[in-house]
Amino acid sequence: MVDLETIRKKAKEIVSREDVKHLIGWRKGTFGYRVTPYWVEAPEDAEELVYSPLCNTNLATSLTLAEKLPLPKGQEPDRRKTALLVRGCDSRAVVQLLTERGVDREQVVLLGLPCRGVVDLRKLKDSYPEDNEVADAEWKEDKIVLNVSGEKKEIPREEVLDDHCLVCRYPNPVEADETLGEKVEPWAEESHPGVEELENASFDKRWDFWEKEFERCIRCYACRNACPMCYCEDCILDRLNPTWIYRSNNYSENTAFHIARAFHLVGRCVSCGACERVCPAGIPLGKINQKLVKEVREKYEFEPGTDPEGVPFQASYNPQDQEDFIL
């Protein structure tokens, strides 16, 4: 793993570069376990950087969230690079964006960090409730150590890590200009426990399950906006002409929304779990995306965001591709 000082030192170095606009990392939030994305503009800002199991946002999203407002005539665009702290999943998102030409490799500086998984705050909620006090956390081998008001609590990672992290097979960056610290041994087997459980259920059971989950959706689109792969200038879910999905909030339209989104992520989802973590209604969106991740891997041996030179899955065709499910 890597210590904070090394990260900060390297970050300072990077933001000092002339060709770098800023470095995006994380800093402490305003209360409890919260951590927020942070833009390091000047070397001294780097002192605020943190890196812990609480860093639960995928920073690759910030690359595509950057708005391109019309520039006044004659003004040149800022061509400086954006530097990014990337873990396995952040880097996979960047790699997937590279293959989709959503990001120009020349325009990003990737500072790699090995990762041992992030905490799912919902799992923390009952046993270790959140307080106003800003709390800290760190990795310690197979455990997460919470530091709340000076009191340290060790928790086995199985109890609190995000489900996606528990089955993560890419804890180290797959693409980076430089990776700090020692690589982490992957701990997970190929599996999708949440998905398999549902797969084994009957059709009616599955239907009931999703009906109940989607019914609760408030259509705030946090899942879409937090997703590093949802970066269309004009999302078709917002389109009015034709209206693919009505604005009405009901089970049917909500389902259409989530299924459409899941299908747009086929062969693109990098399994970071951001969608599920941000959902204010607690919908287990990972299950639907991971089902498709699983199908794509099993049927086509494709894993998004692992090959910077690769052709995007949805744009690749091989006459030998399985198509038995069509008829």
Binding site: T36, P37, W39, T57, S62, I218, C220, N225, V278
Partner: peptide, 16 residues
């Protein structure tokens, strides 16, 4: 600029 930079542009704050 600073306070909105991390914003995802979702509607969670307003809907809730």
């Amino acid at each position: 600029d600073e306070v909105s930079r991390a914003c995802l542009g979702c509607g969670a704050c307003t809907f809730l």
